[in-house]
Simulated assay, not measured.
Amino acid sequence: MERINFSTDAVTTEEELREIVGTPHEYVIKKNVSVIDEHCKRFIEMSPLFFLSSSNAEGQCDVSPKGDFPSGVKVLNNKQLVIPDRPGNKRVDSIINMLSNPHIGLLFLIPGLGEVLRINGRATIIKNPDILSSMTFKGKPPLLGIGVDVEECFIHCPRALKQSKAWDTDSWPDKADLPSSLEIFHAALQHNGVELVKK
């Protein structure tokens, strides 16, 4: 298919958008809170997986999955939490984004639960030894931490996870039919002119 010019028939104003999708119920608007209350804290502490969205000063976006043991993310108080940055592949895309744009979004999941917890706030890259030493995993503290000043928390309905059947093991495809991550990785390297060394 040829490249499409999406701007030809684009929605460009909120007024036009509202004419199509309508307006949300008052309950939906007012479910946001600006603090980590008891329920949000418990949700975070039970979540072993979350997604972190960030963008740089130019607006280029990134979403990164983060997995840790439940309660790996430390809630300091009702306005702040800290995300451990464990050793990885050293790309640190999210952290580089935060250096120029501190606004981030977090999406916490609990396996088997359809609802997700959304948190928005401002991030600071921290190296405070007292905080980092309290987040030790397998005998090692994280190299850095992402301190988050929370601005918004709210629960999100289960529709997406229900419709996708993400937690329904009977709906999962056969592993033999899944795309090979190694093949995708190698294809990307070759696309970028990297010659693979055969062993």
Rank of each mutant, 00 (worst) to 15 (best):
A187Y: 01
L189Q: 07
S100M: 04
G112V: 06
L107T: 06
H186T: 12
G114D: 09
A166G: 06
P84W: 06
P70E: 07
E115N: 14
T136V: 14
L113W: 02
G67T: 03
F108W: 02
L99W: 02
T124W: 01
V148I: 11
Q60N: 11
P179L: 03
V148W: 07
G139D: 02
H191G: 08
L81Q: 04
V148F: 09
I110V: 15
W167L: 02
K90I: 03
A187K: 10
S134N: 02
L143N: 07
G139E: 08
G121D: 08
E58T: 04
D149S: 15
V150M: 10
W167F: 13
F137V: 13
K90H: 09
L178D: 00
Q60P: 00
L143D: 07
D68F: 12
M135P: 04
V73P: 00
N120V: 03
L189N: 05
N128P: 00
S180R: 08
S164I: 03
C157A: 09
V75L: 05
F154Y: 15
S171W: 08
E151P: 02
S94C: 15
G114I: 08
Q80S: 14
H156Q: 14
C157D: 12
D85T: 10
E152T: 13
A160Y: 06
W172F: 12
T169F: 04
G193W: 10
N101W: 01
L143W: 04
E151K: 12
R159P: 00
P158H: 05
P142L: 14
D170T: 15
V148A: 04
I146M: 11
C61F: 07
N192M: 12
D174E: 15
P87T: 05
V194R: 14
I146G: 01
D170F: 00
T169H: 09
I125S: 02
N120H: 15
P65N: 01
I119L: 15
V116N: 05
S64L: 02
G88L: 04
P87Q: 08
G67Q: 11
K66G: 02
H103W: 13
L76R: 01
G67H: 06
G193Q: 08
V75C: 08
A187F: 06
D130E: 13
G121R: 07
W167G: 08
G88S: 15
F185V: 01
D174L: 03
W167N: 04
E195A: 15
I95F: 02
